[in-house]
Computed example of a mutant assay.
Amino acid sequence: VLDSKAPTIPVAEYIYTENRYKQLTRNNPEVAKKLADDLQKEVDARFAFYTAMSKDTEGLISL
């Protein structure tokens, strides 16, 4: 059973509230964009996996 809802804001919006990540966008915007995109894909995939696990009532997912 999932105890949280799906993320409601993009990862980039969340991480750029911290100065250390904002600094990266100032110093190297291309790398910052790629890292934020990669992180968003990872977050989406992980949540999809957890959602699938929570719906797995017949042992369709093996760990």
Rank of each mutant, 00 (worst) to 15 (best):
D37F: 08
A32V: 09
F47I: 04
V1L: 07
K55A: 06
S62P: 03
V11M: 10
T51D: 09
S4P: 00
R26M: 10
N28E: 14
G59D: 07
S4K: 13
L2Q: 11
Q23I: 11
K5W: 04
T57C: 05
F47M: 09
Q40E: 14
E30G: 04
D38K: 05
R26A: 12
Y16S: 00
N27M: 14
N28T: 07
D37W: 03
L35H: 03
I9C: 04
E13Y: 04
L2C: 05
S54W: 00
M53N: 02
M53D: 03
K41A: 15
L35D: 03
K33H: 11
N28D: 15
R20Q: 14
L60K: 11
N19K: 15
F49H: 11
P7Y: 07
Y50G: 02
N27T: 15
T57L: 15
A32C: 07
L35F: 05
L60C: 00
R26T: 11
A48N: 10
A36R: 02
P10E: 08
K5L: 14
V11P: 08
E18T: 01
N27D: 14
A12S: 15
K33I: 06
V43S: 03
K55E: 11
V31C: 06
E58A: 11
N27Q: 15
K5I: 07
A12V: 14
N27S: 13
E58K: 14
A52M: 12
T8W: 01
Y14E: 10
E42F: 06
S4E: 08
S54P: 05
K41I: 08
D37V: 10
A36K: 01
S54V: 00
V1H: 07
D44Y: 04
K22G: 12
D37I: 07
G59R: 10
K22H: 03
Q40C: 10
N28M: 08
D38H: 02
T8P: 00
L24M: 14
K5N: 07
P7R: 09
K5P: 00
I9D: 06
V11C: 09
G59W: 00
E58H: 12
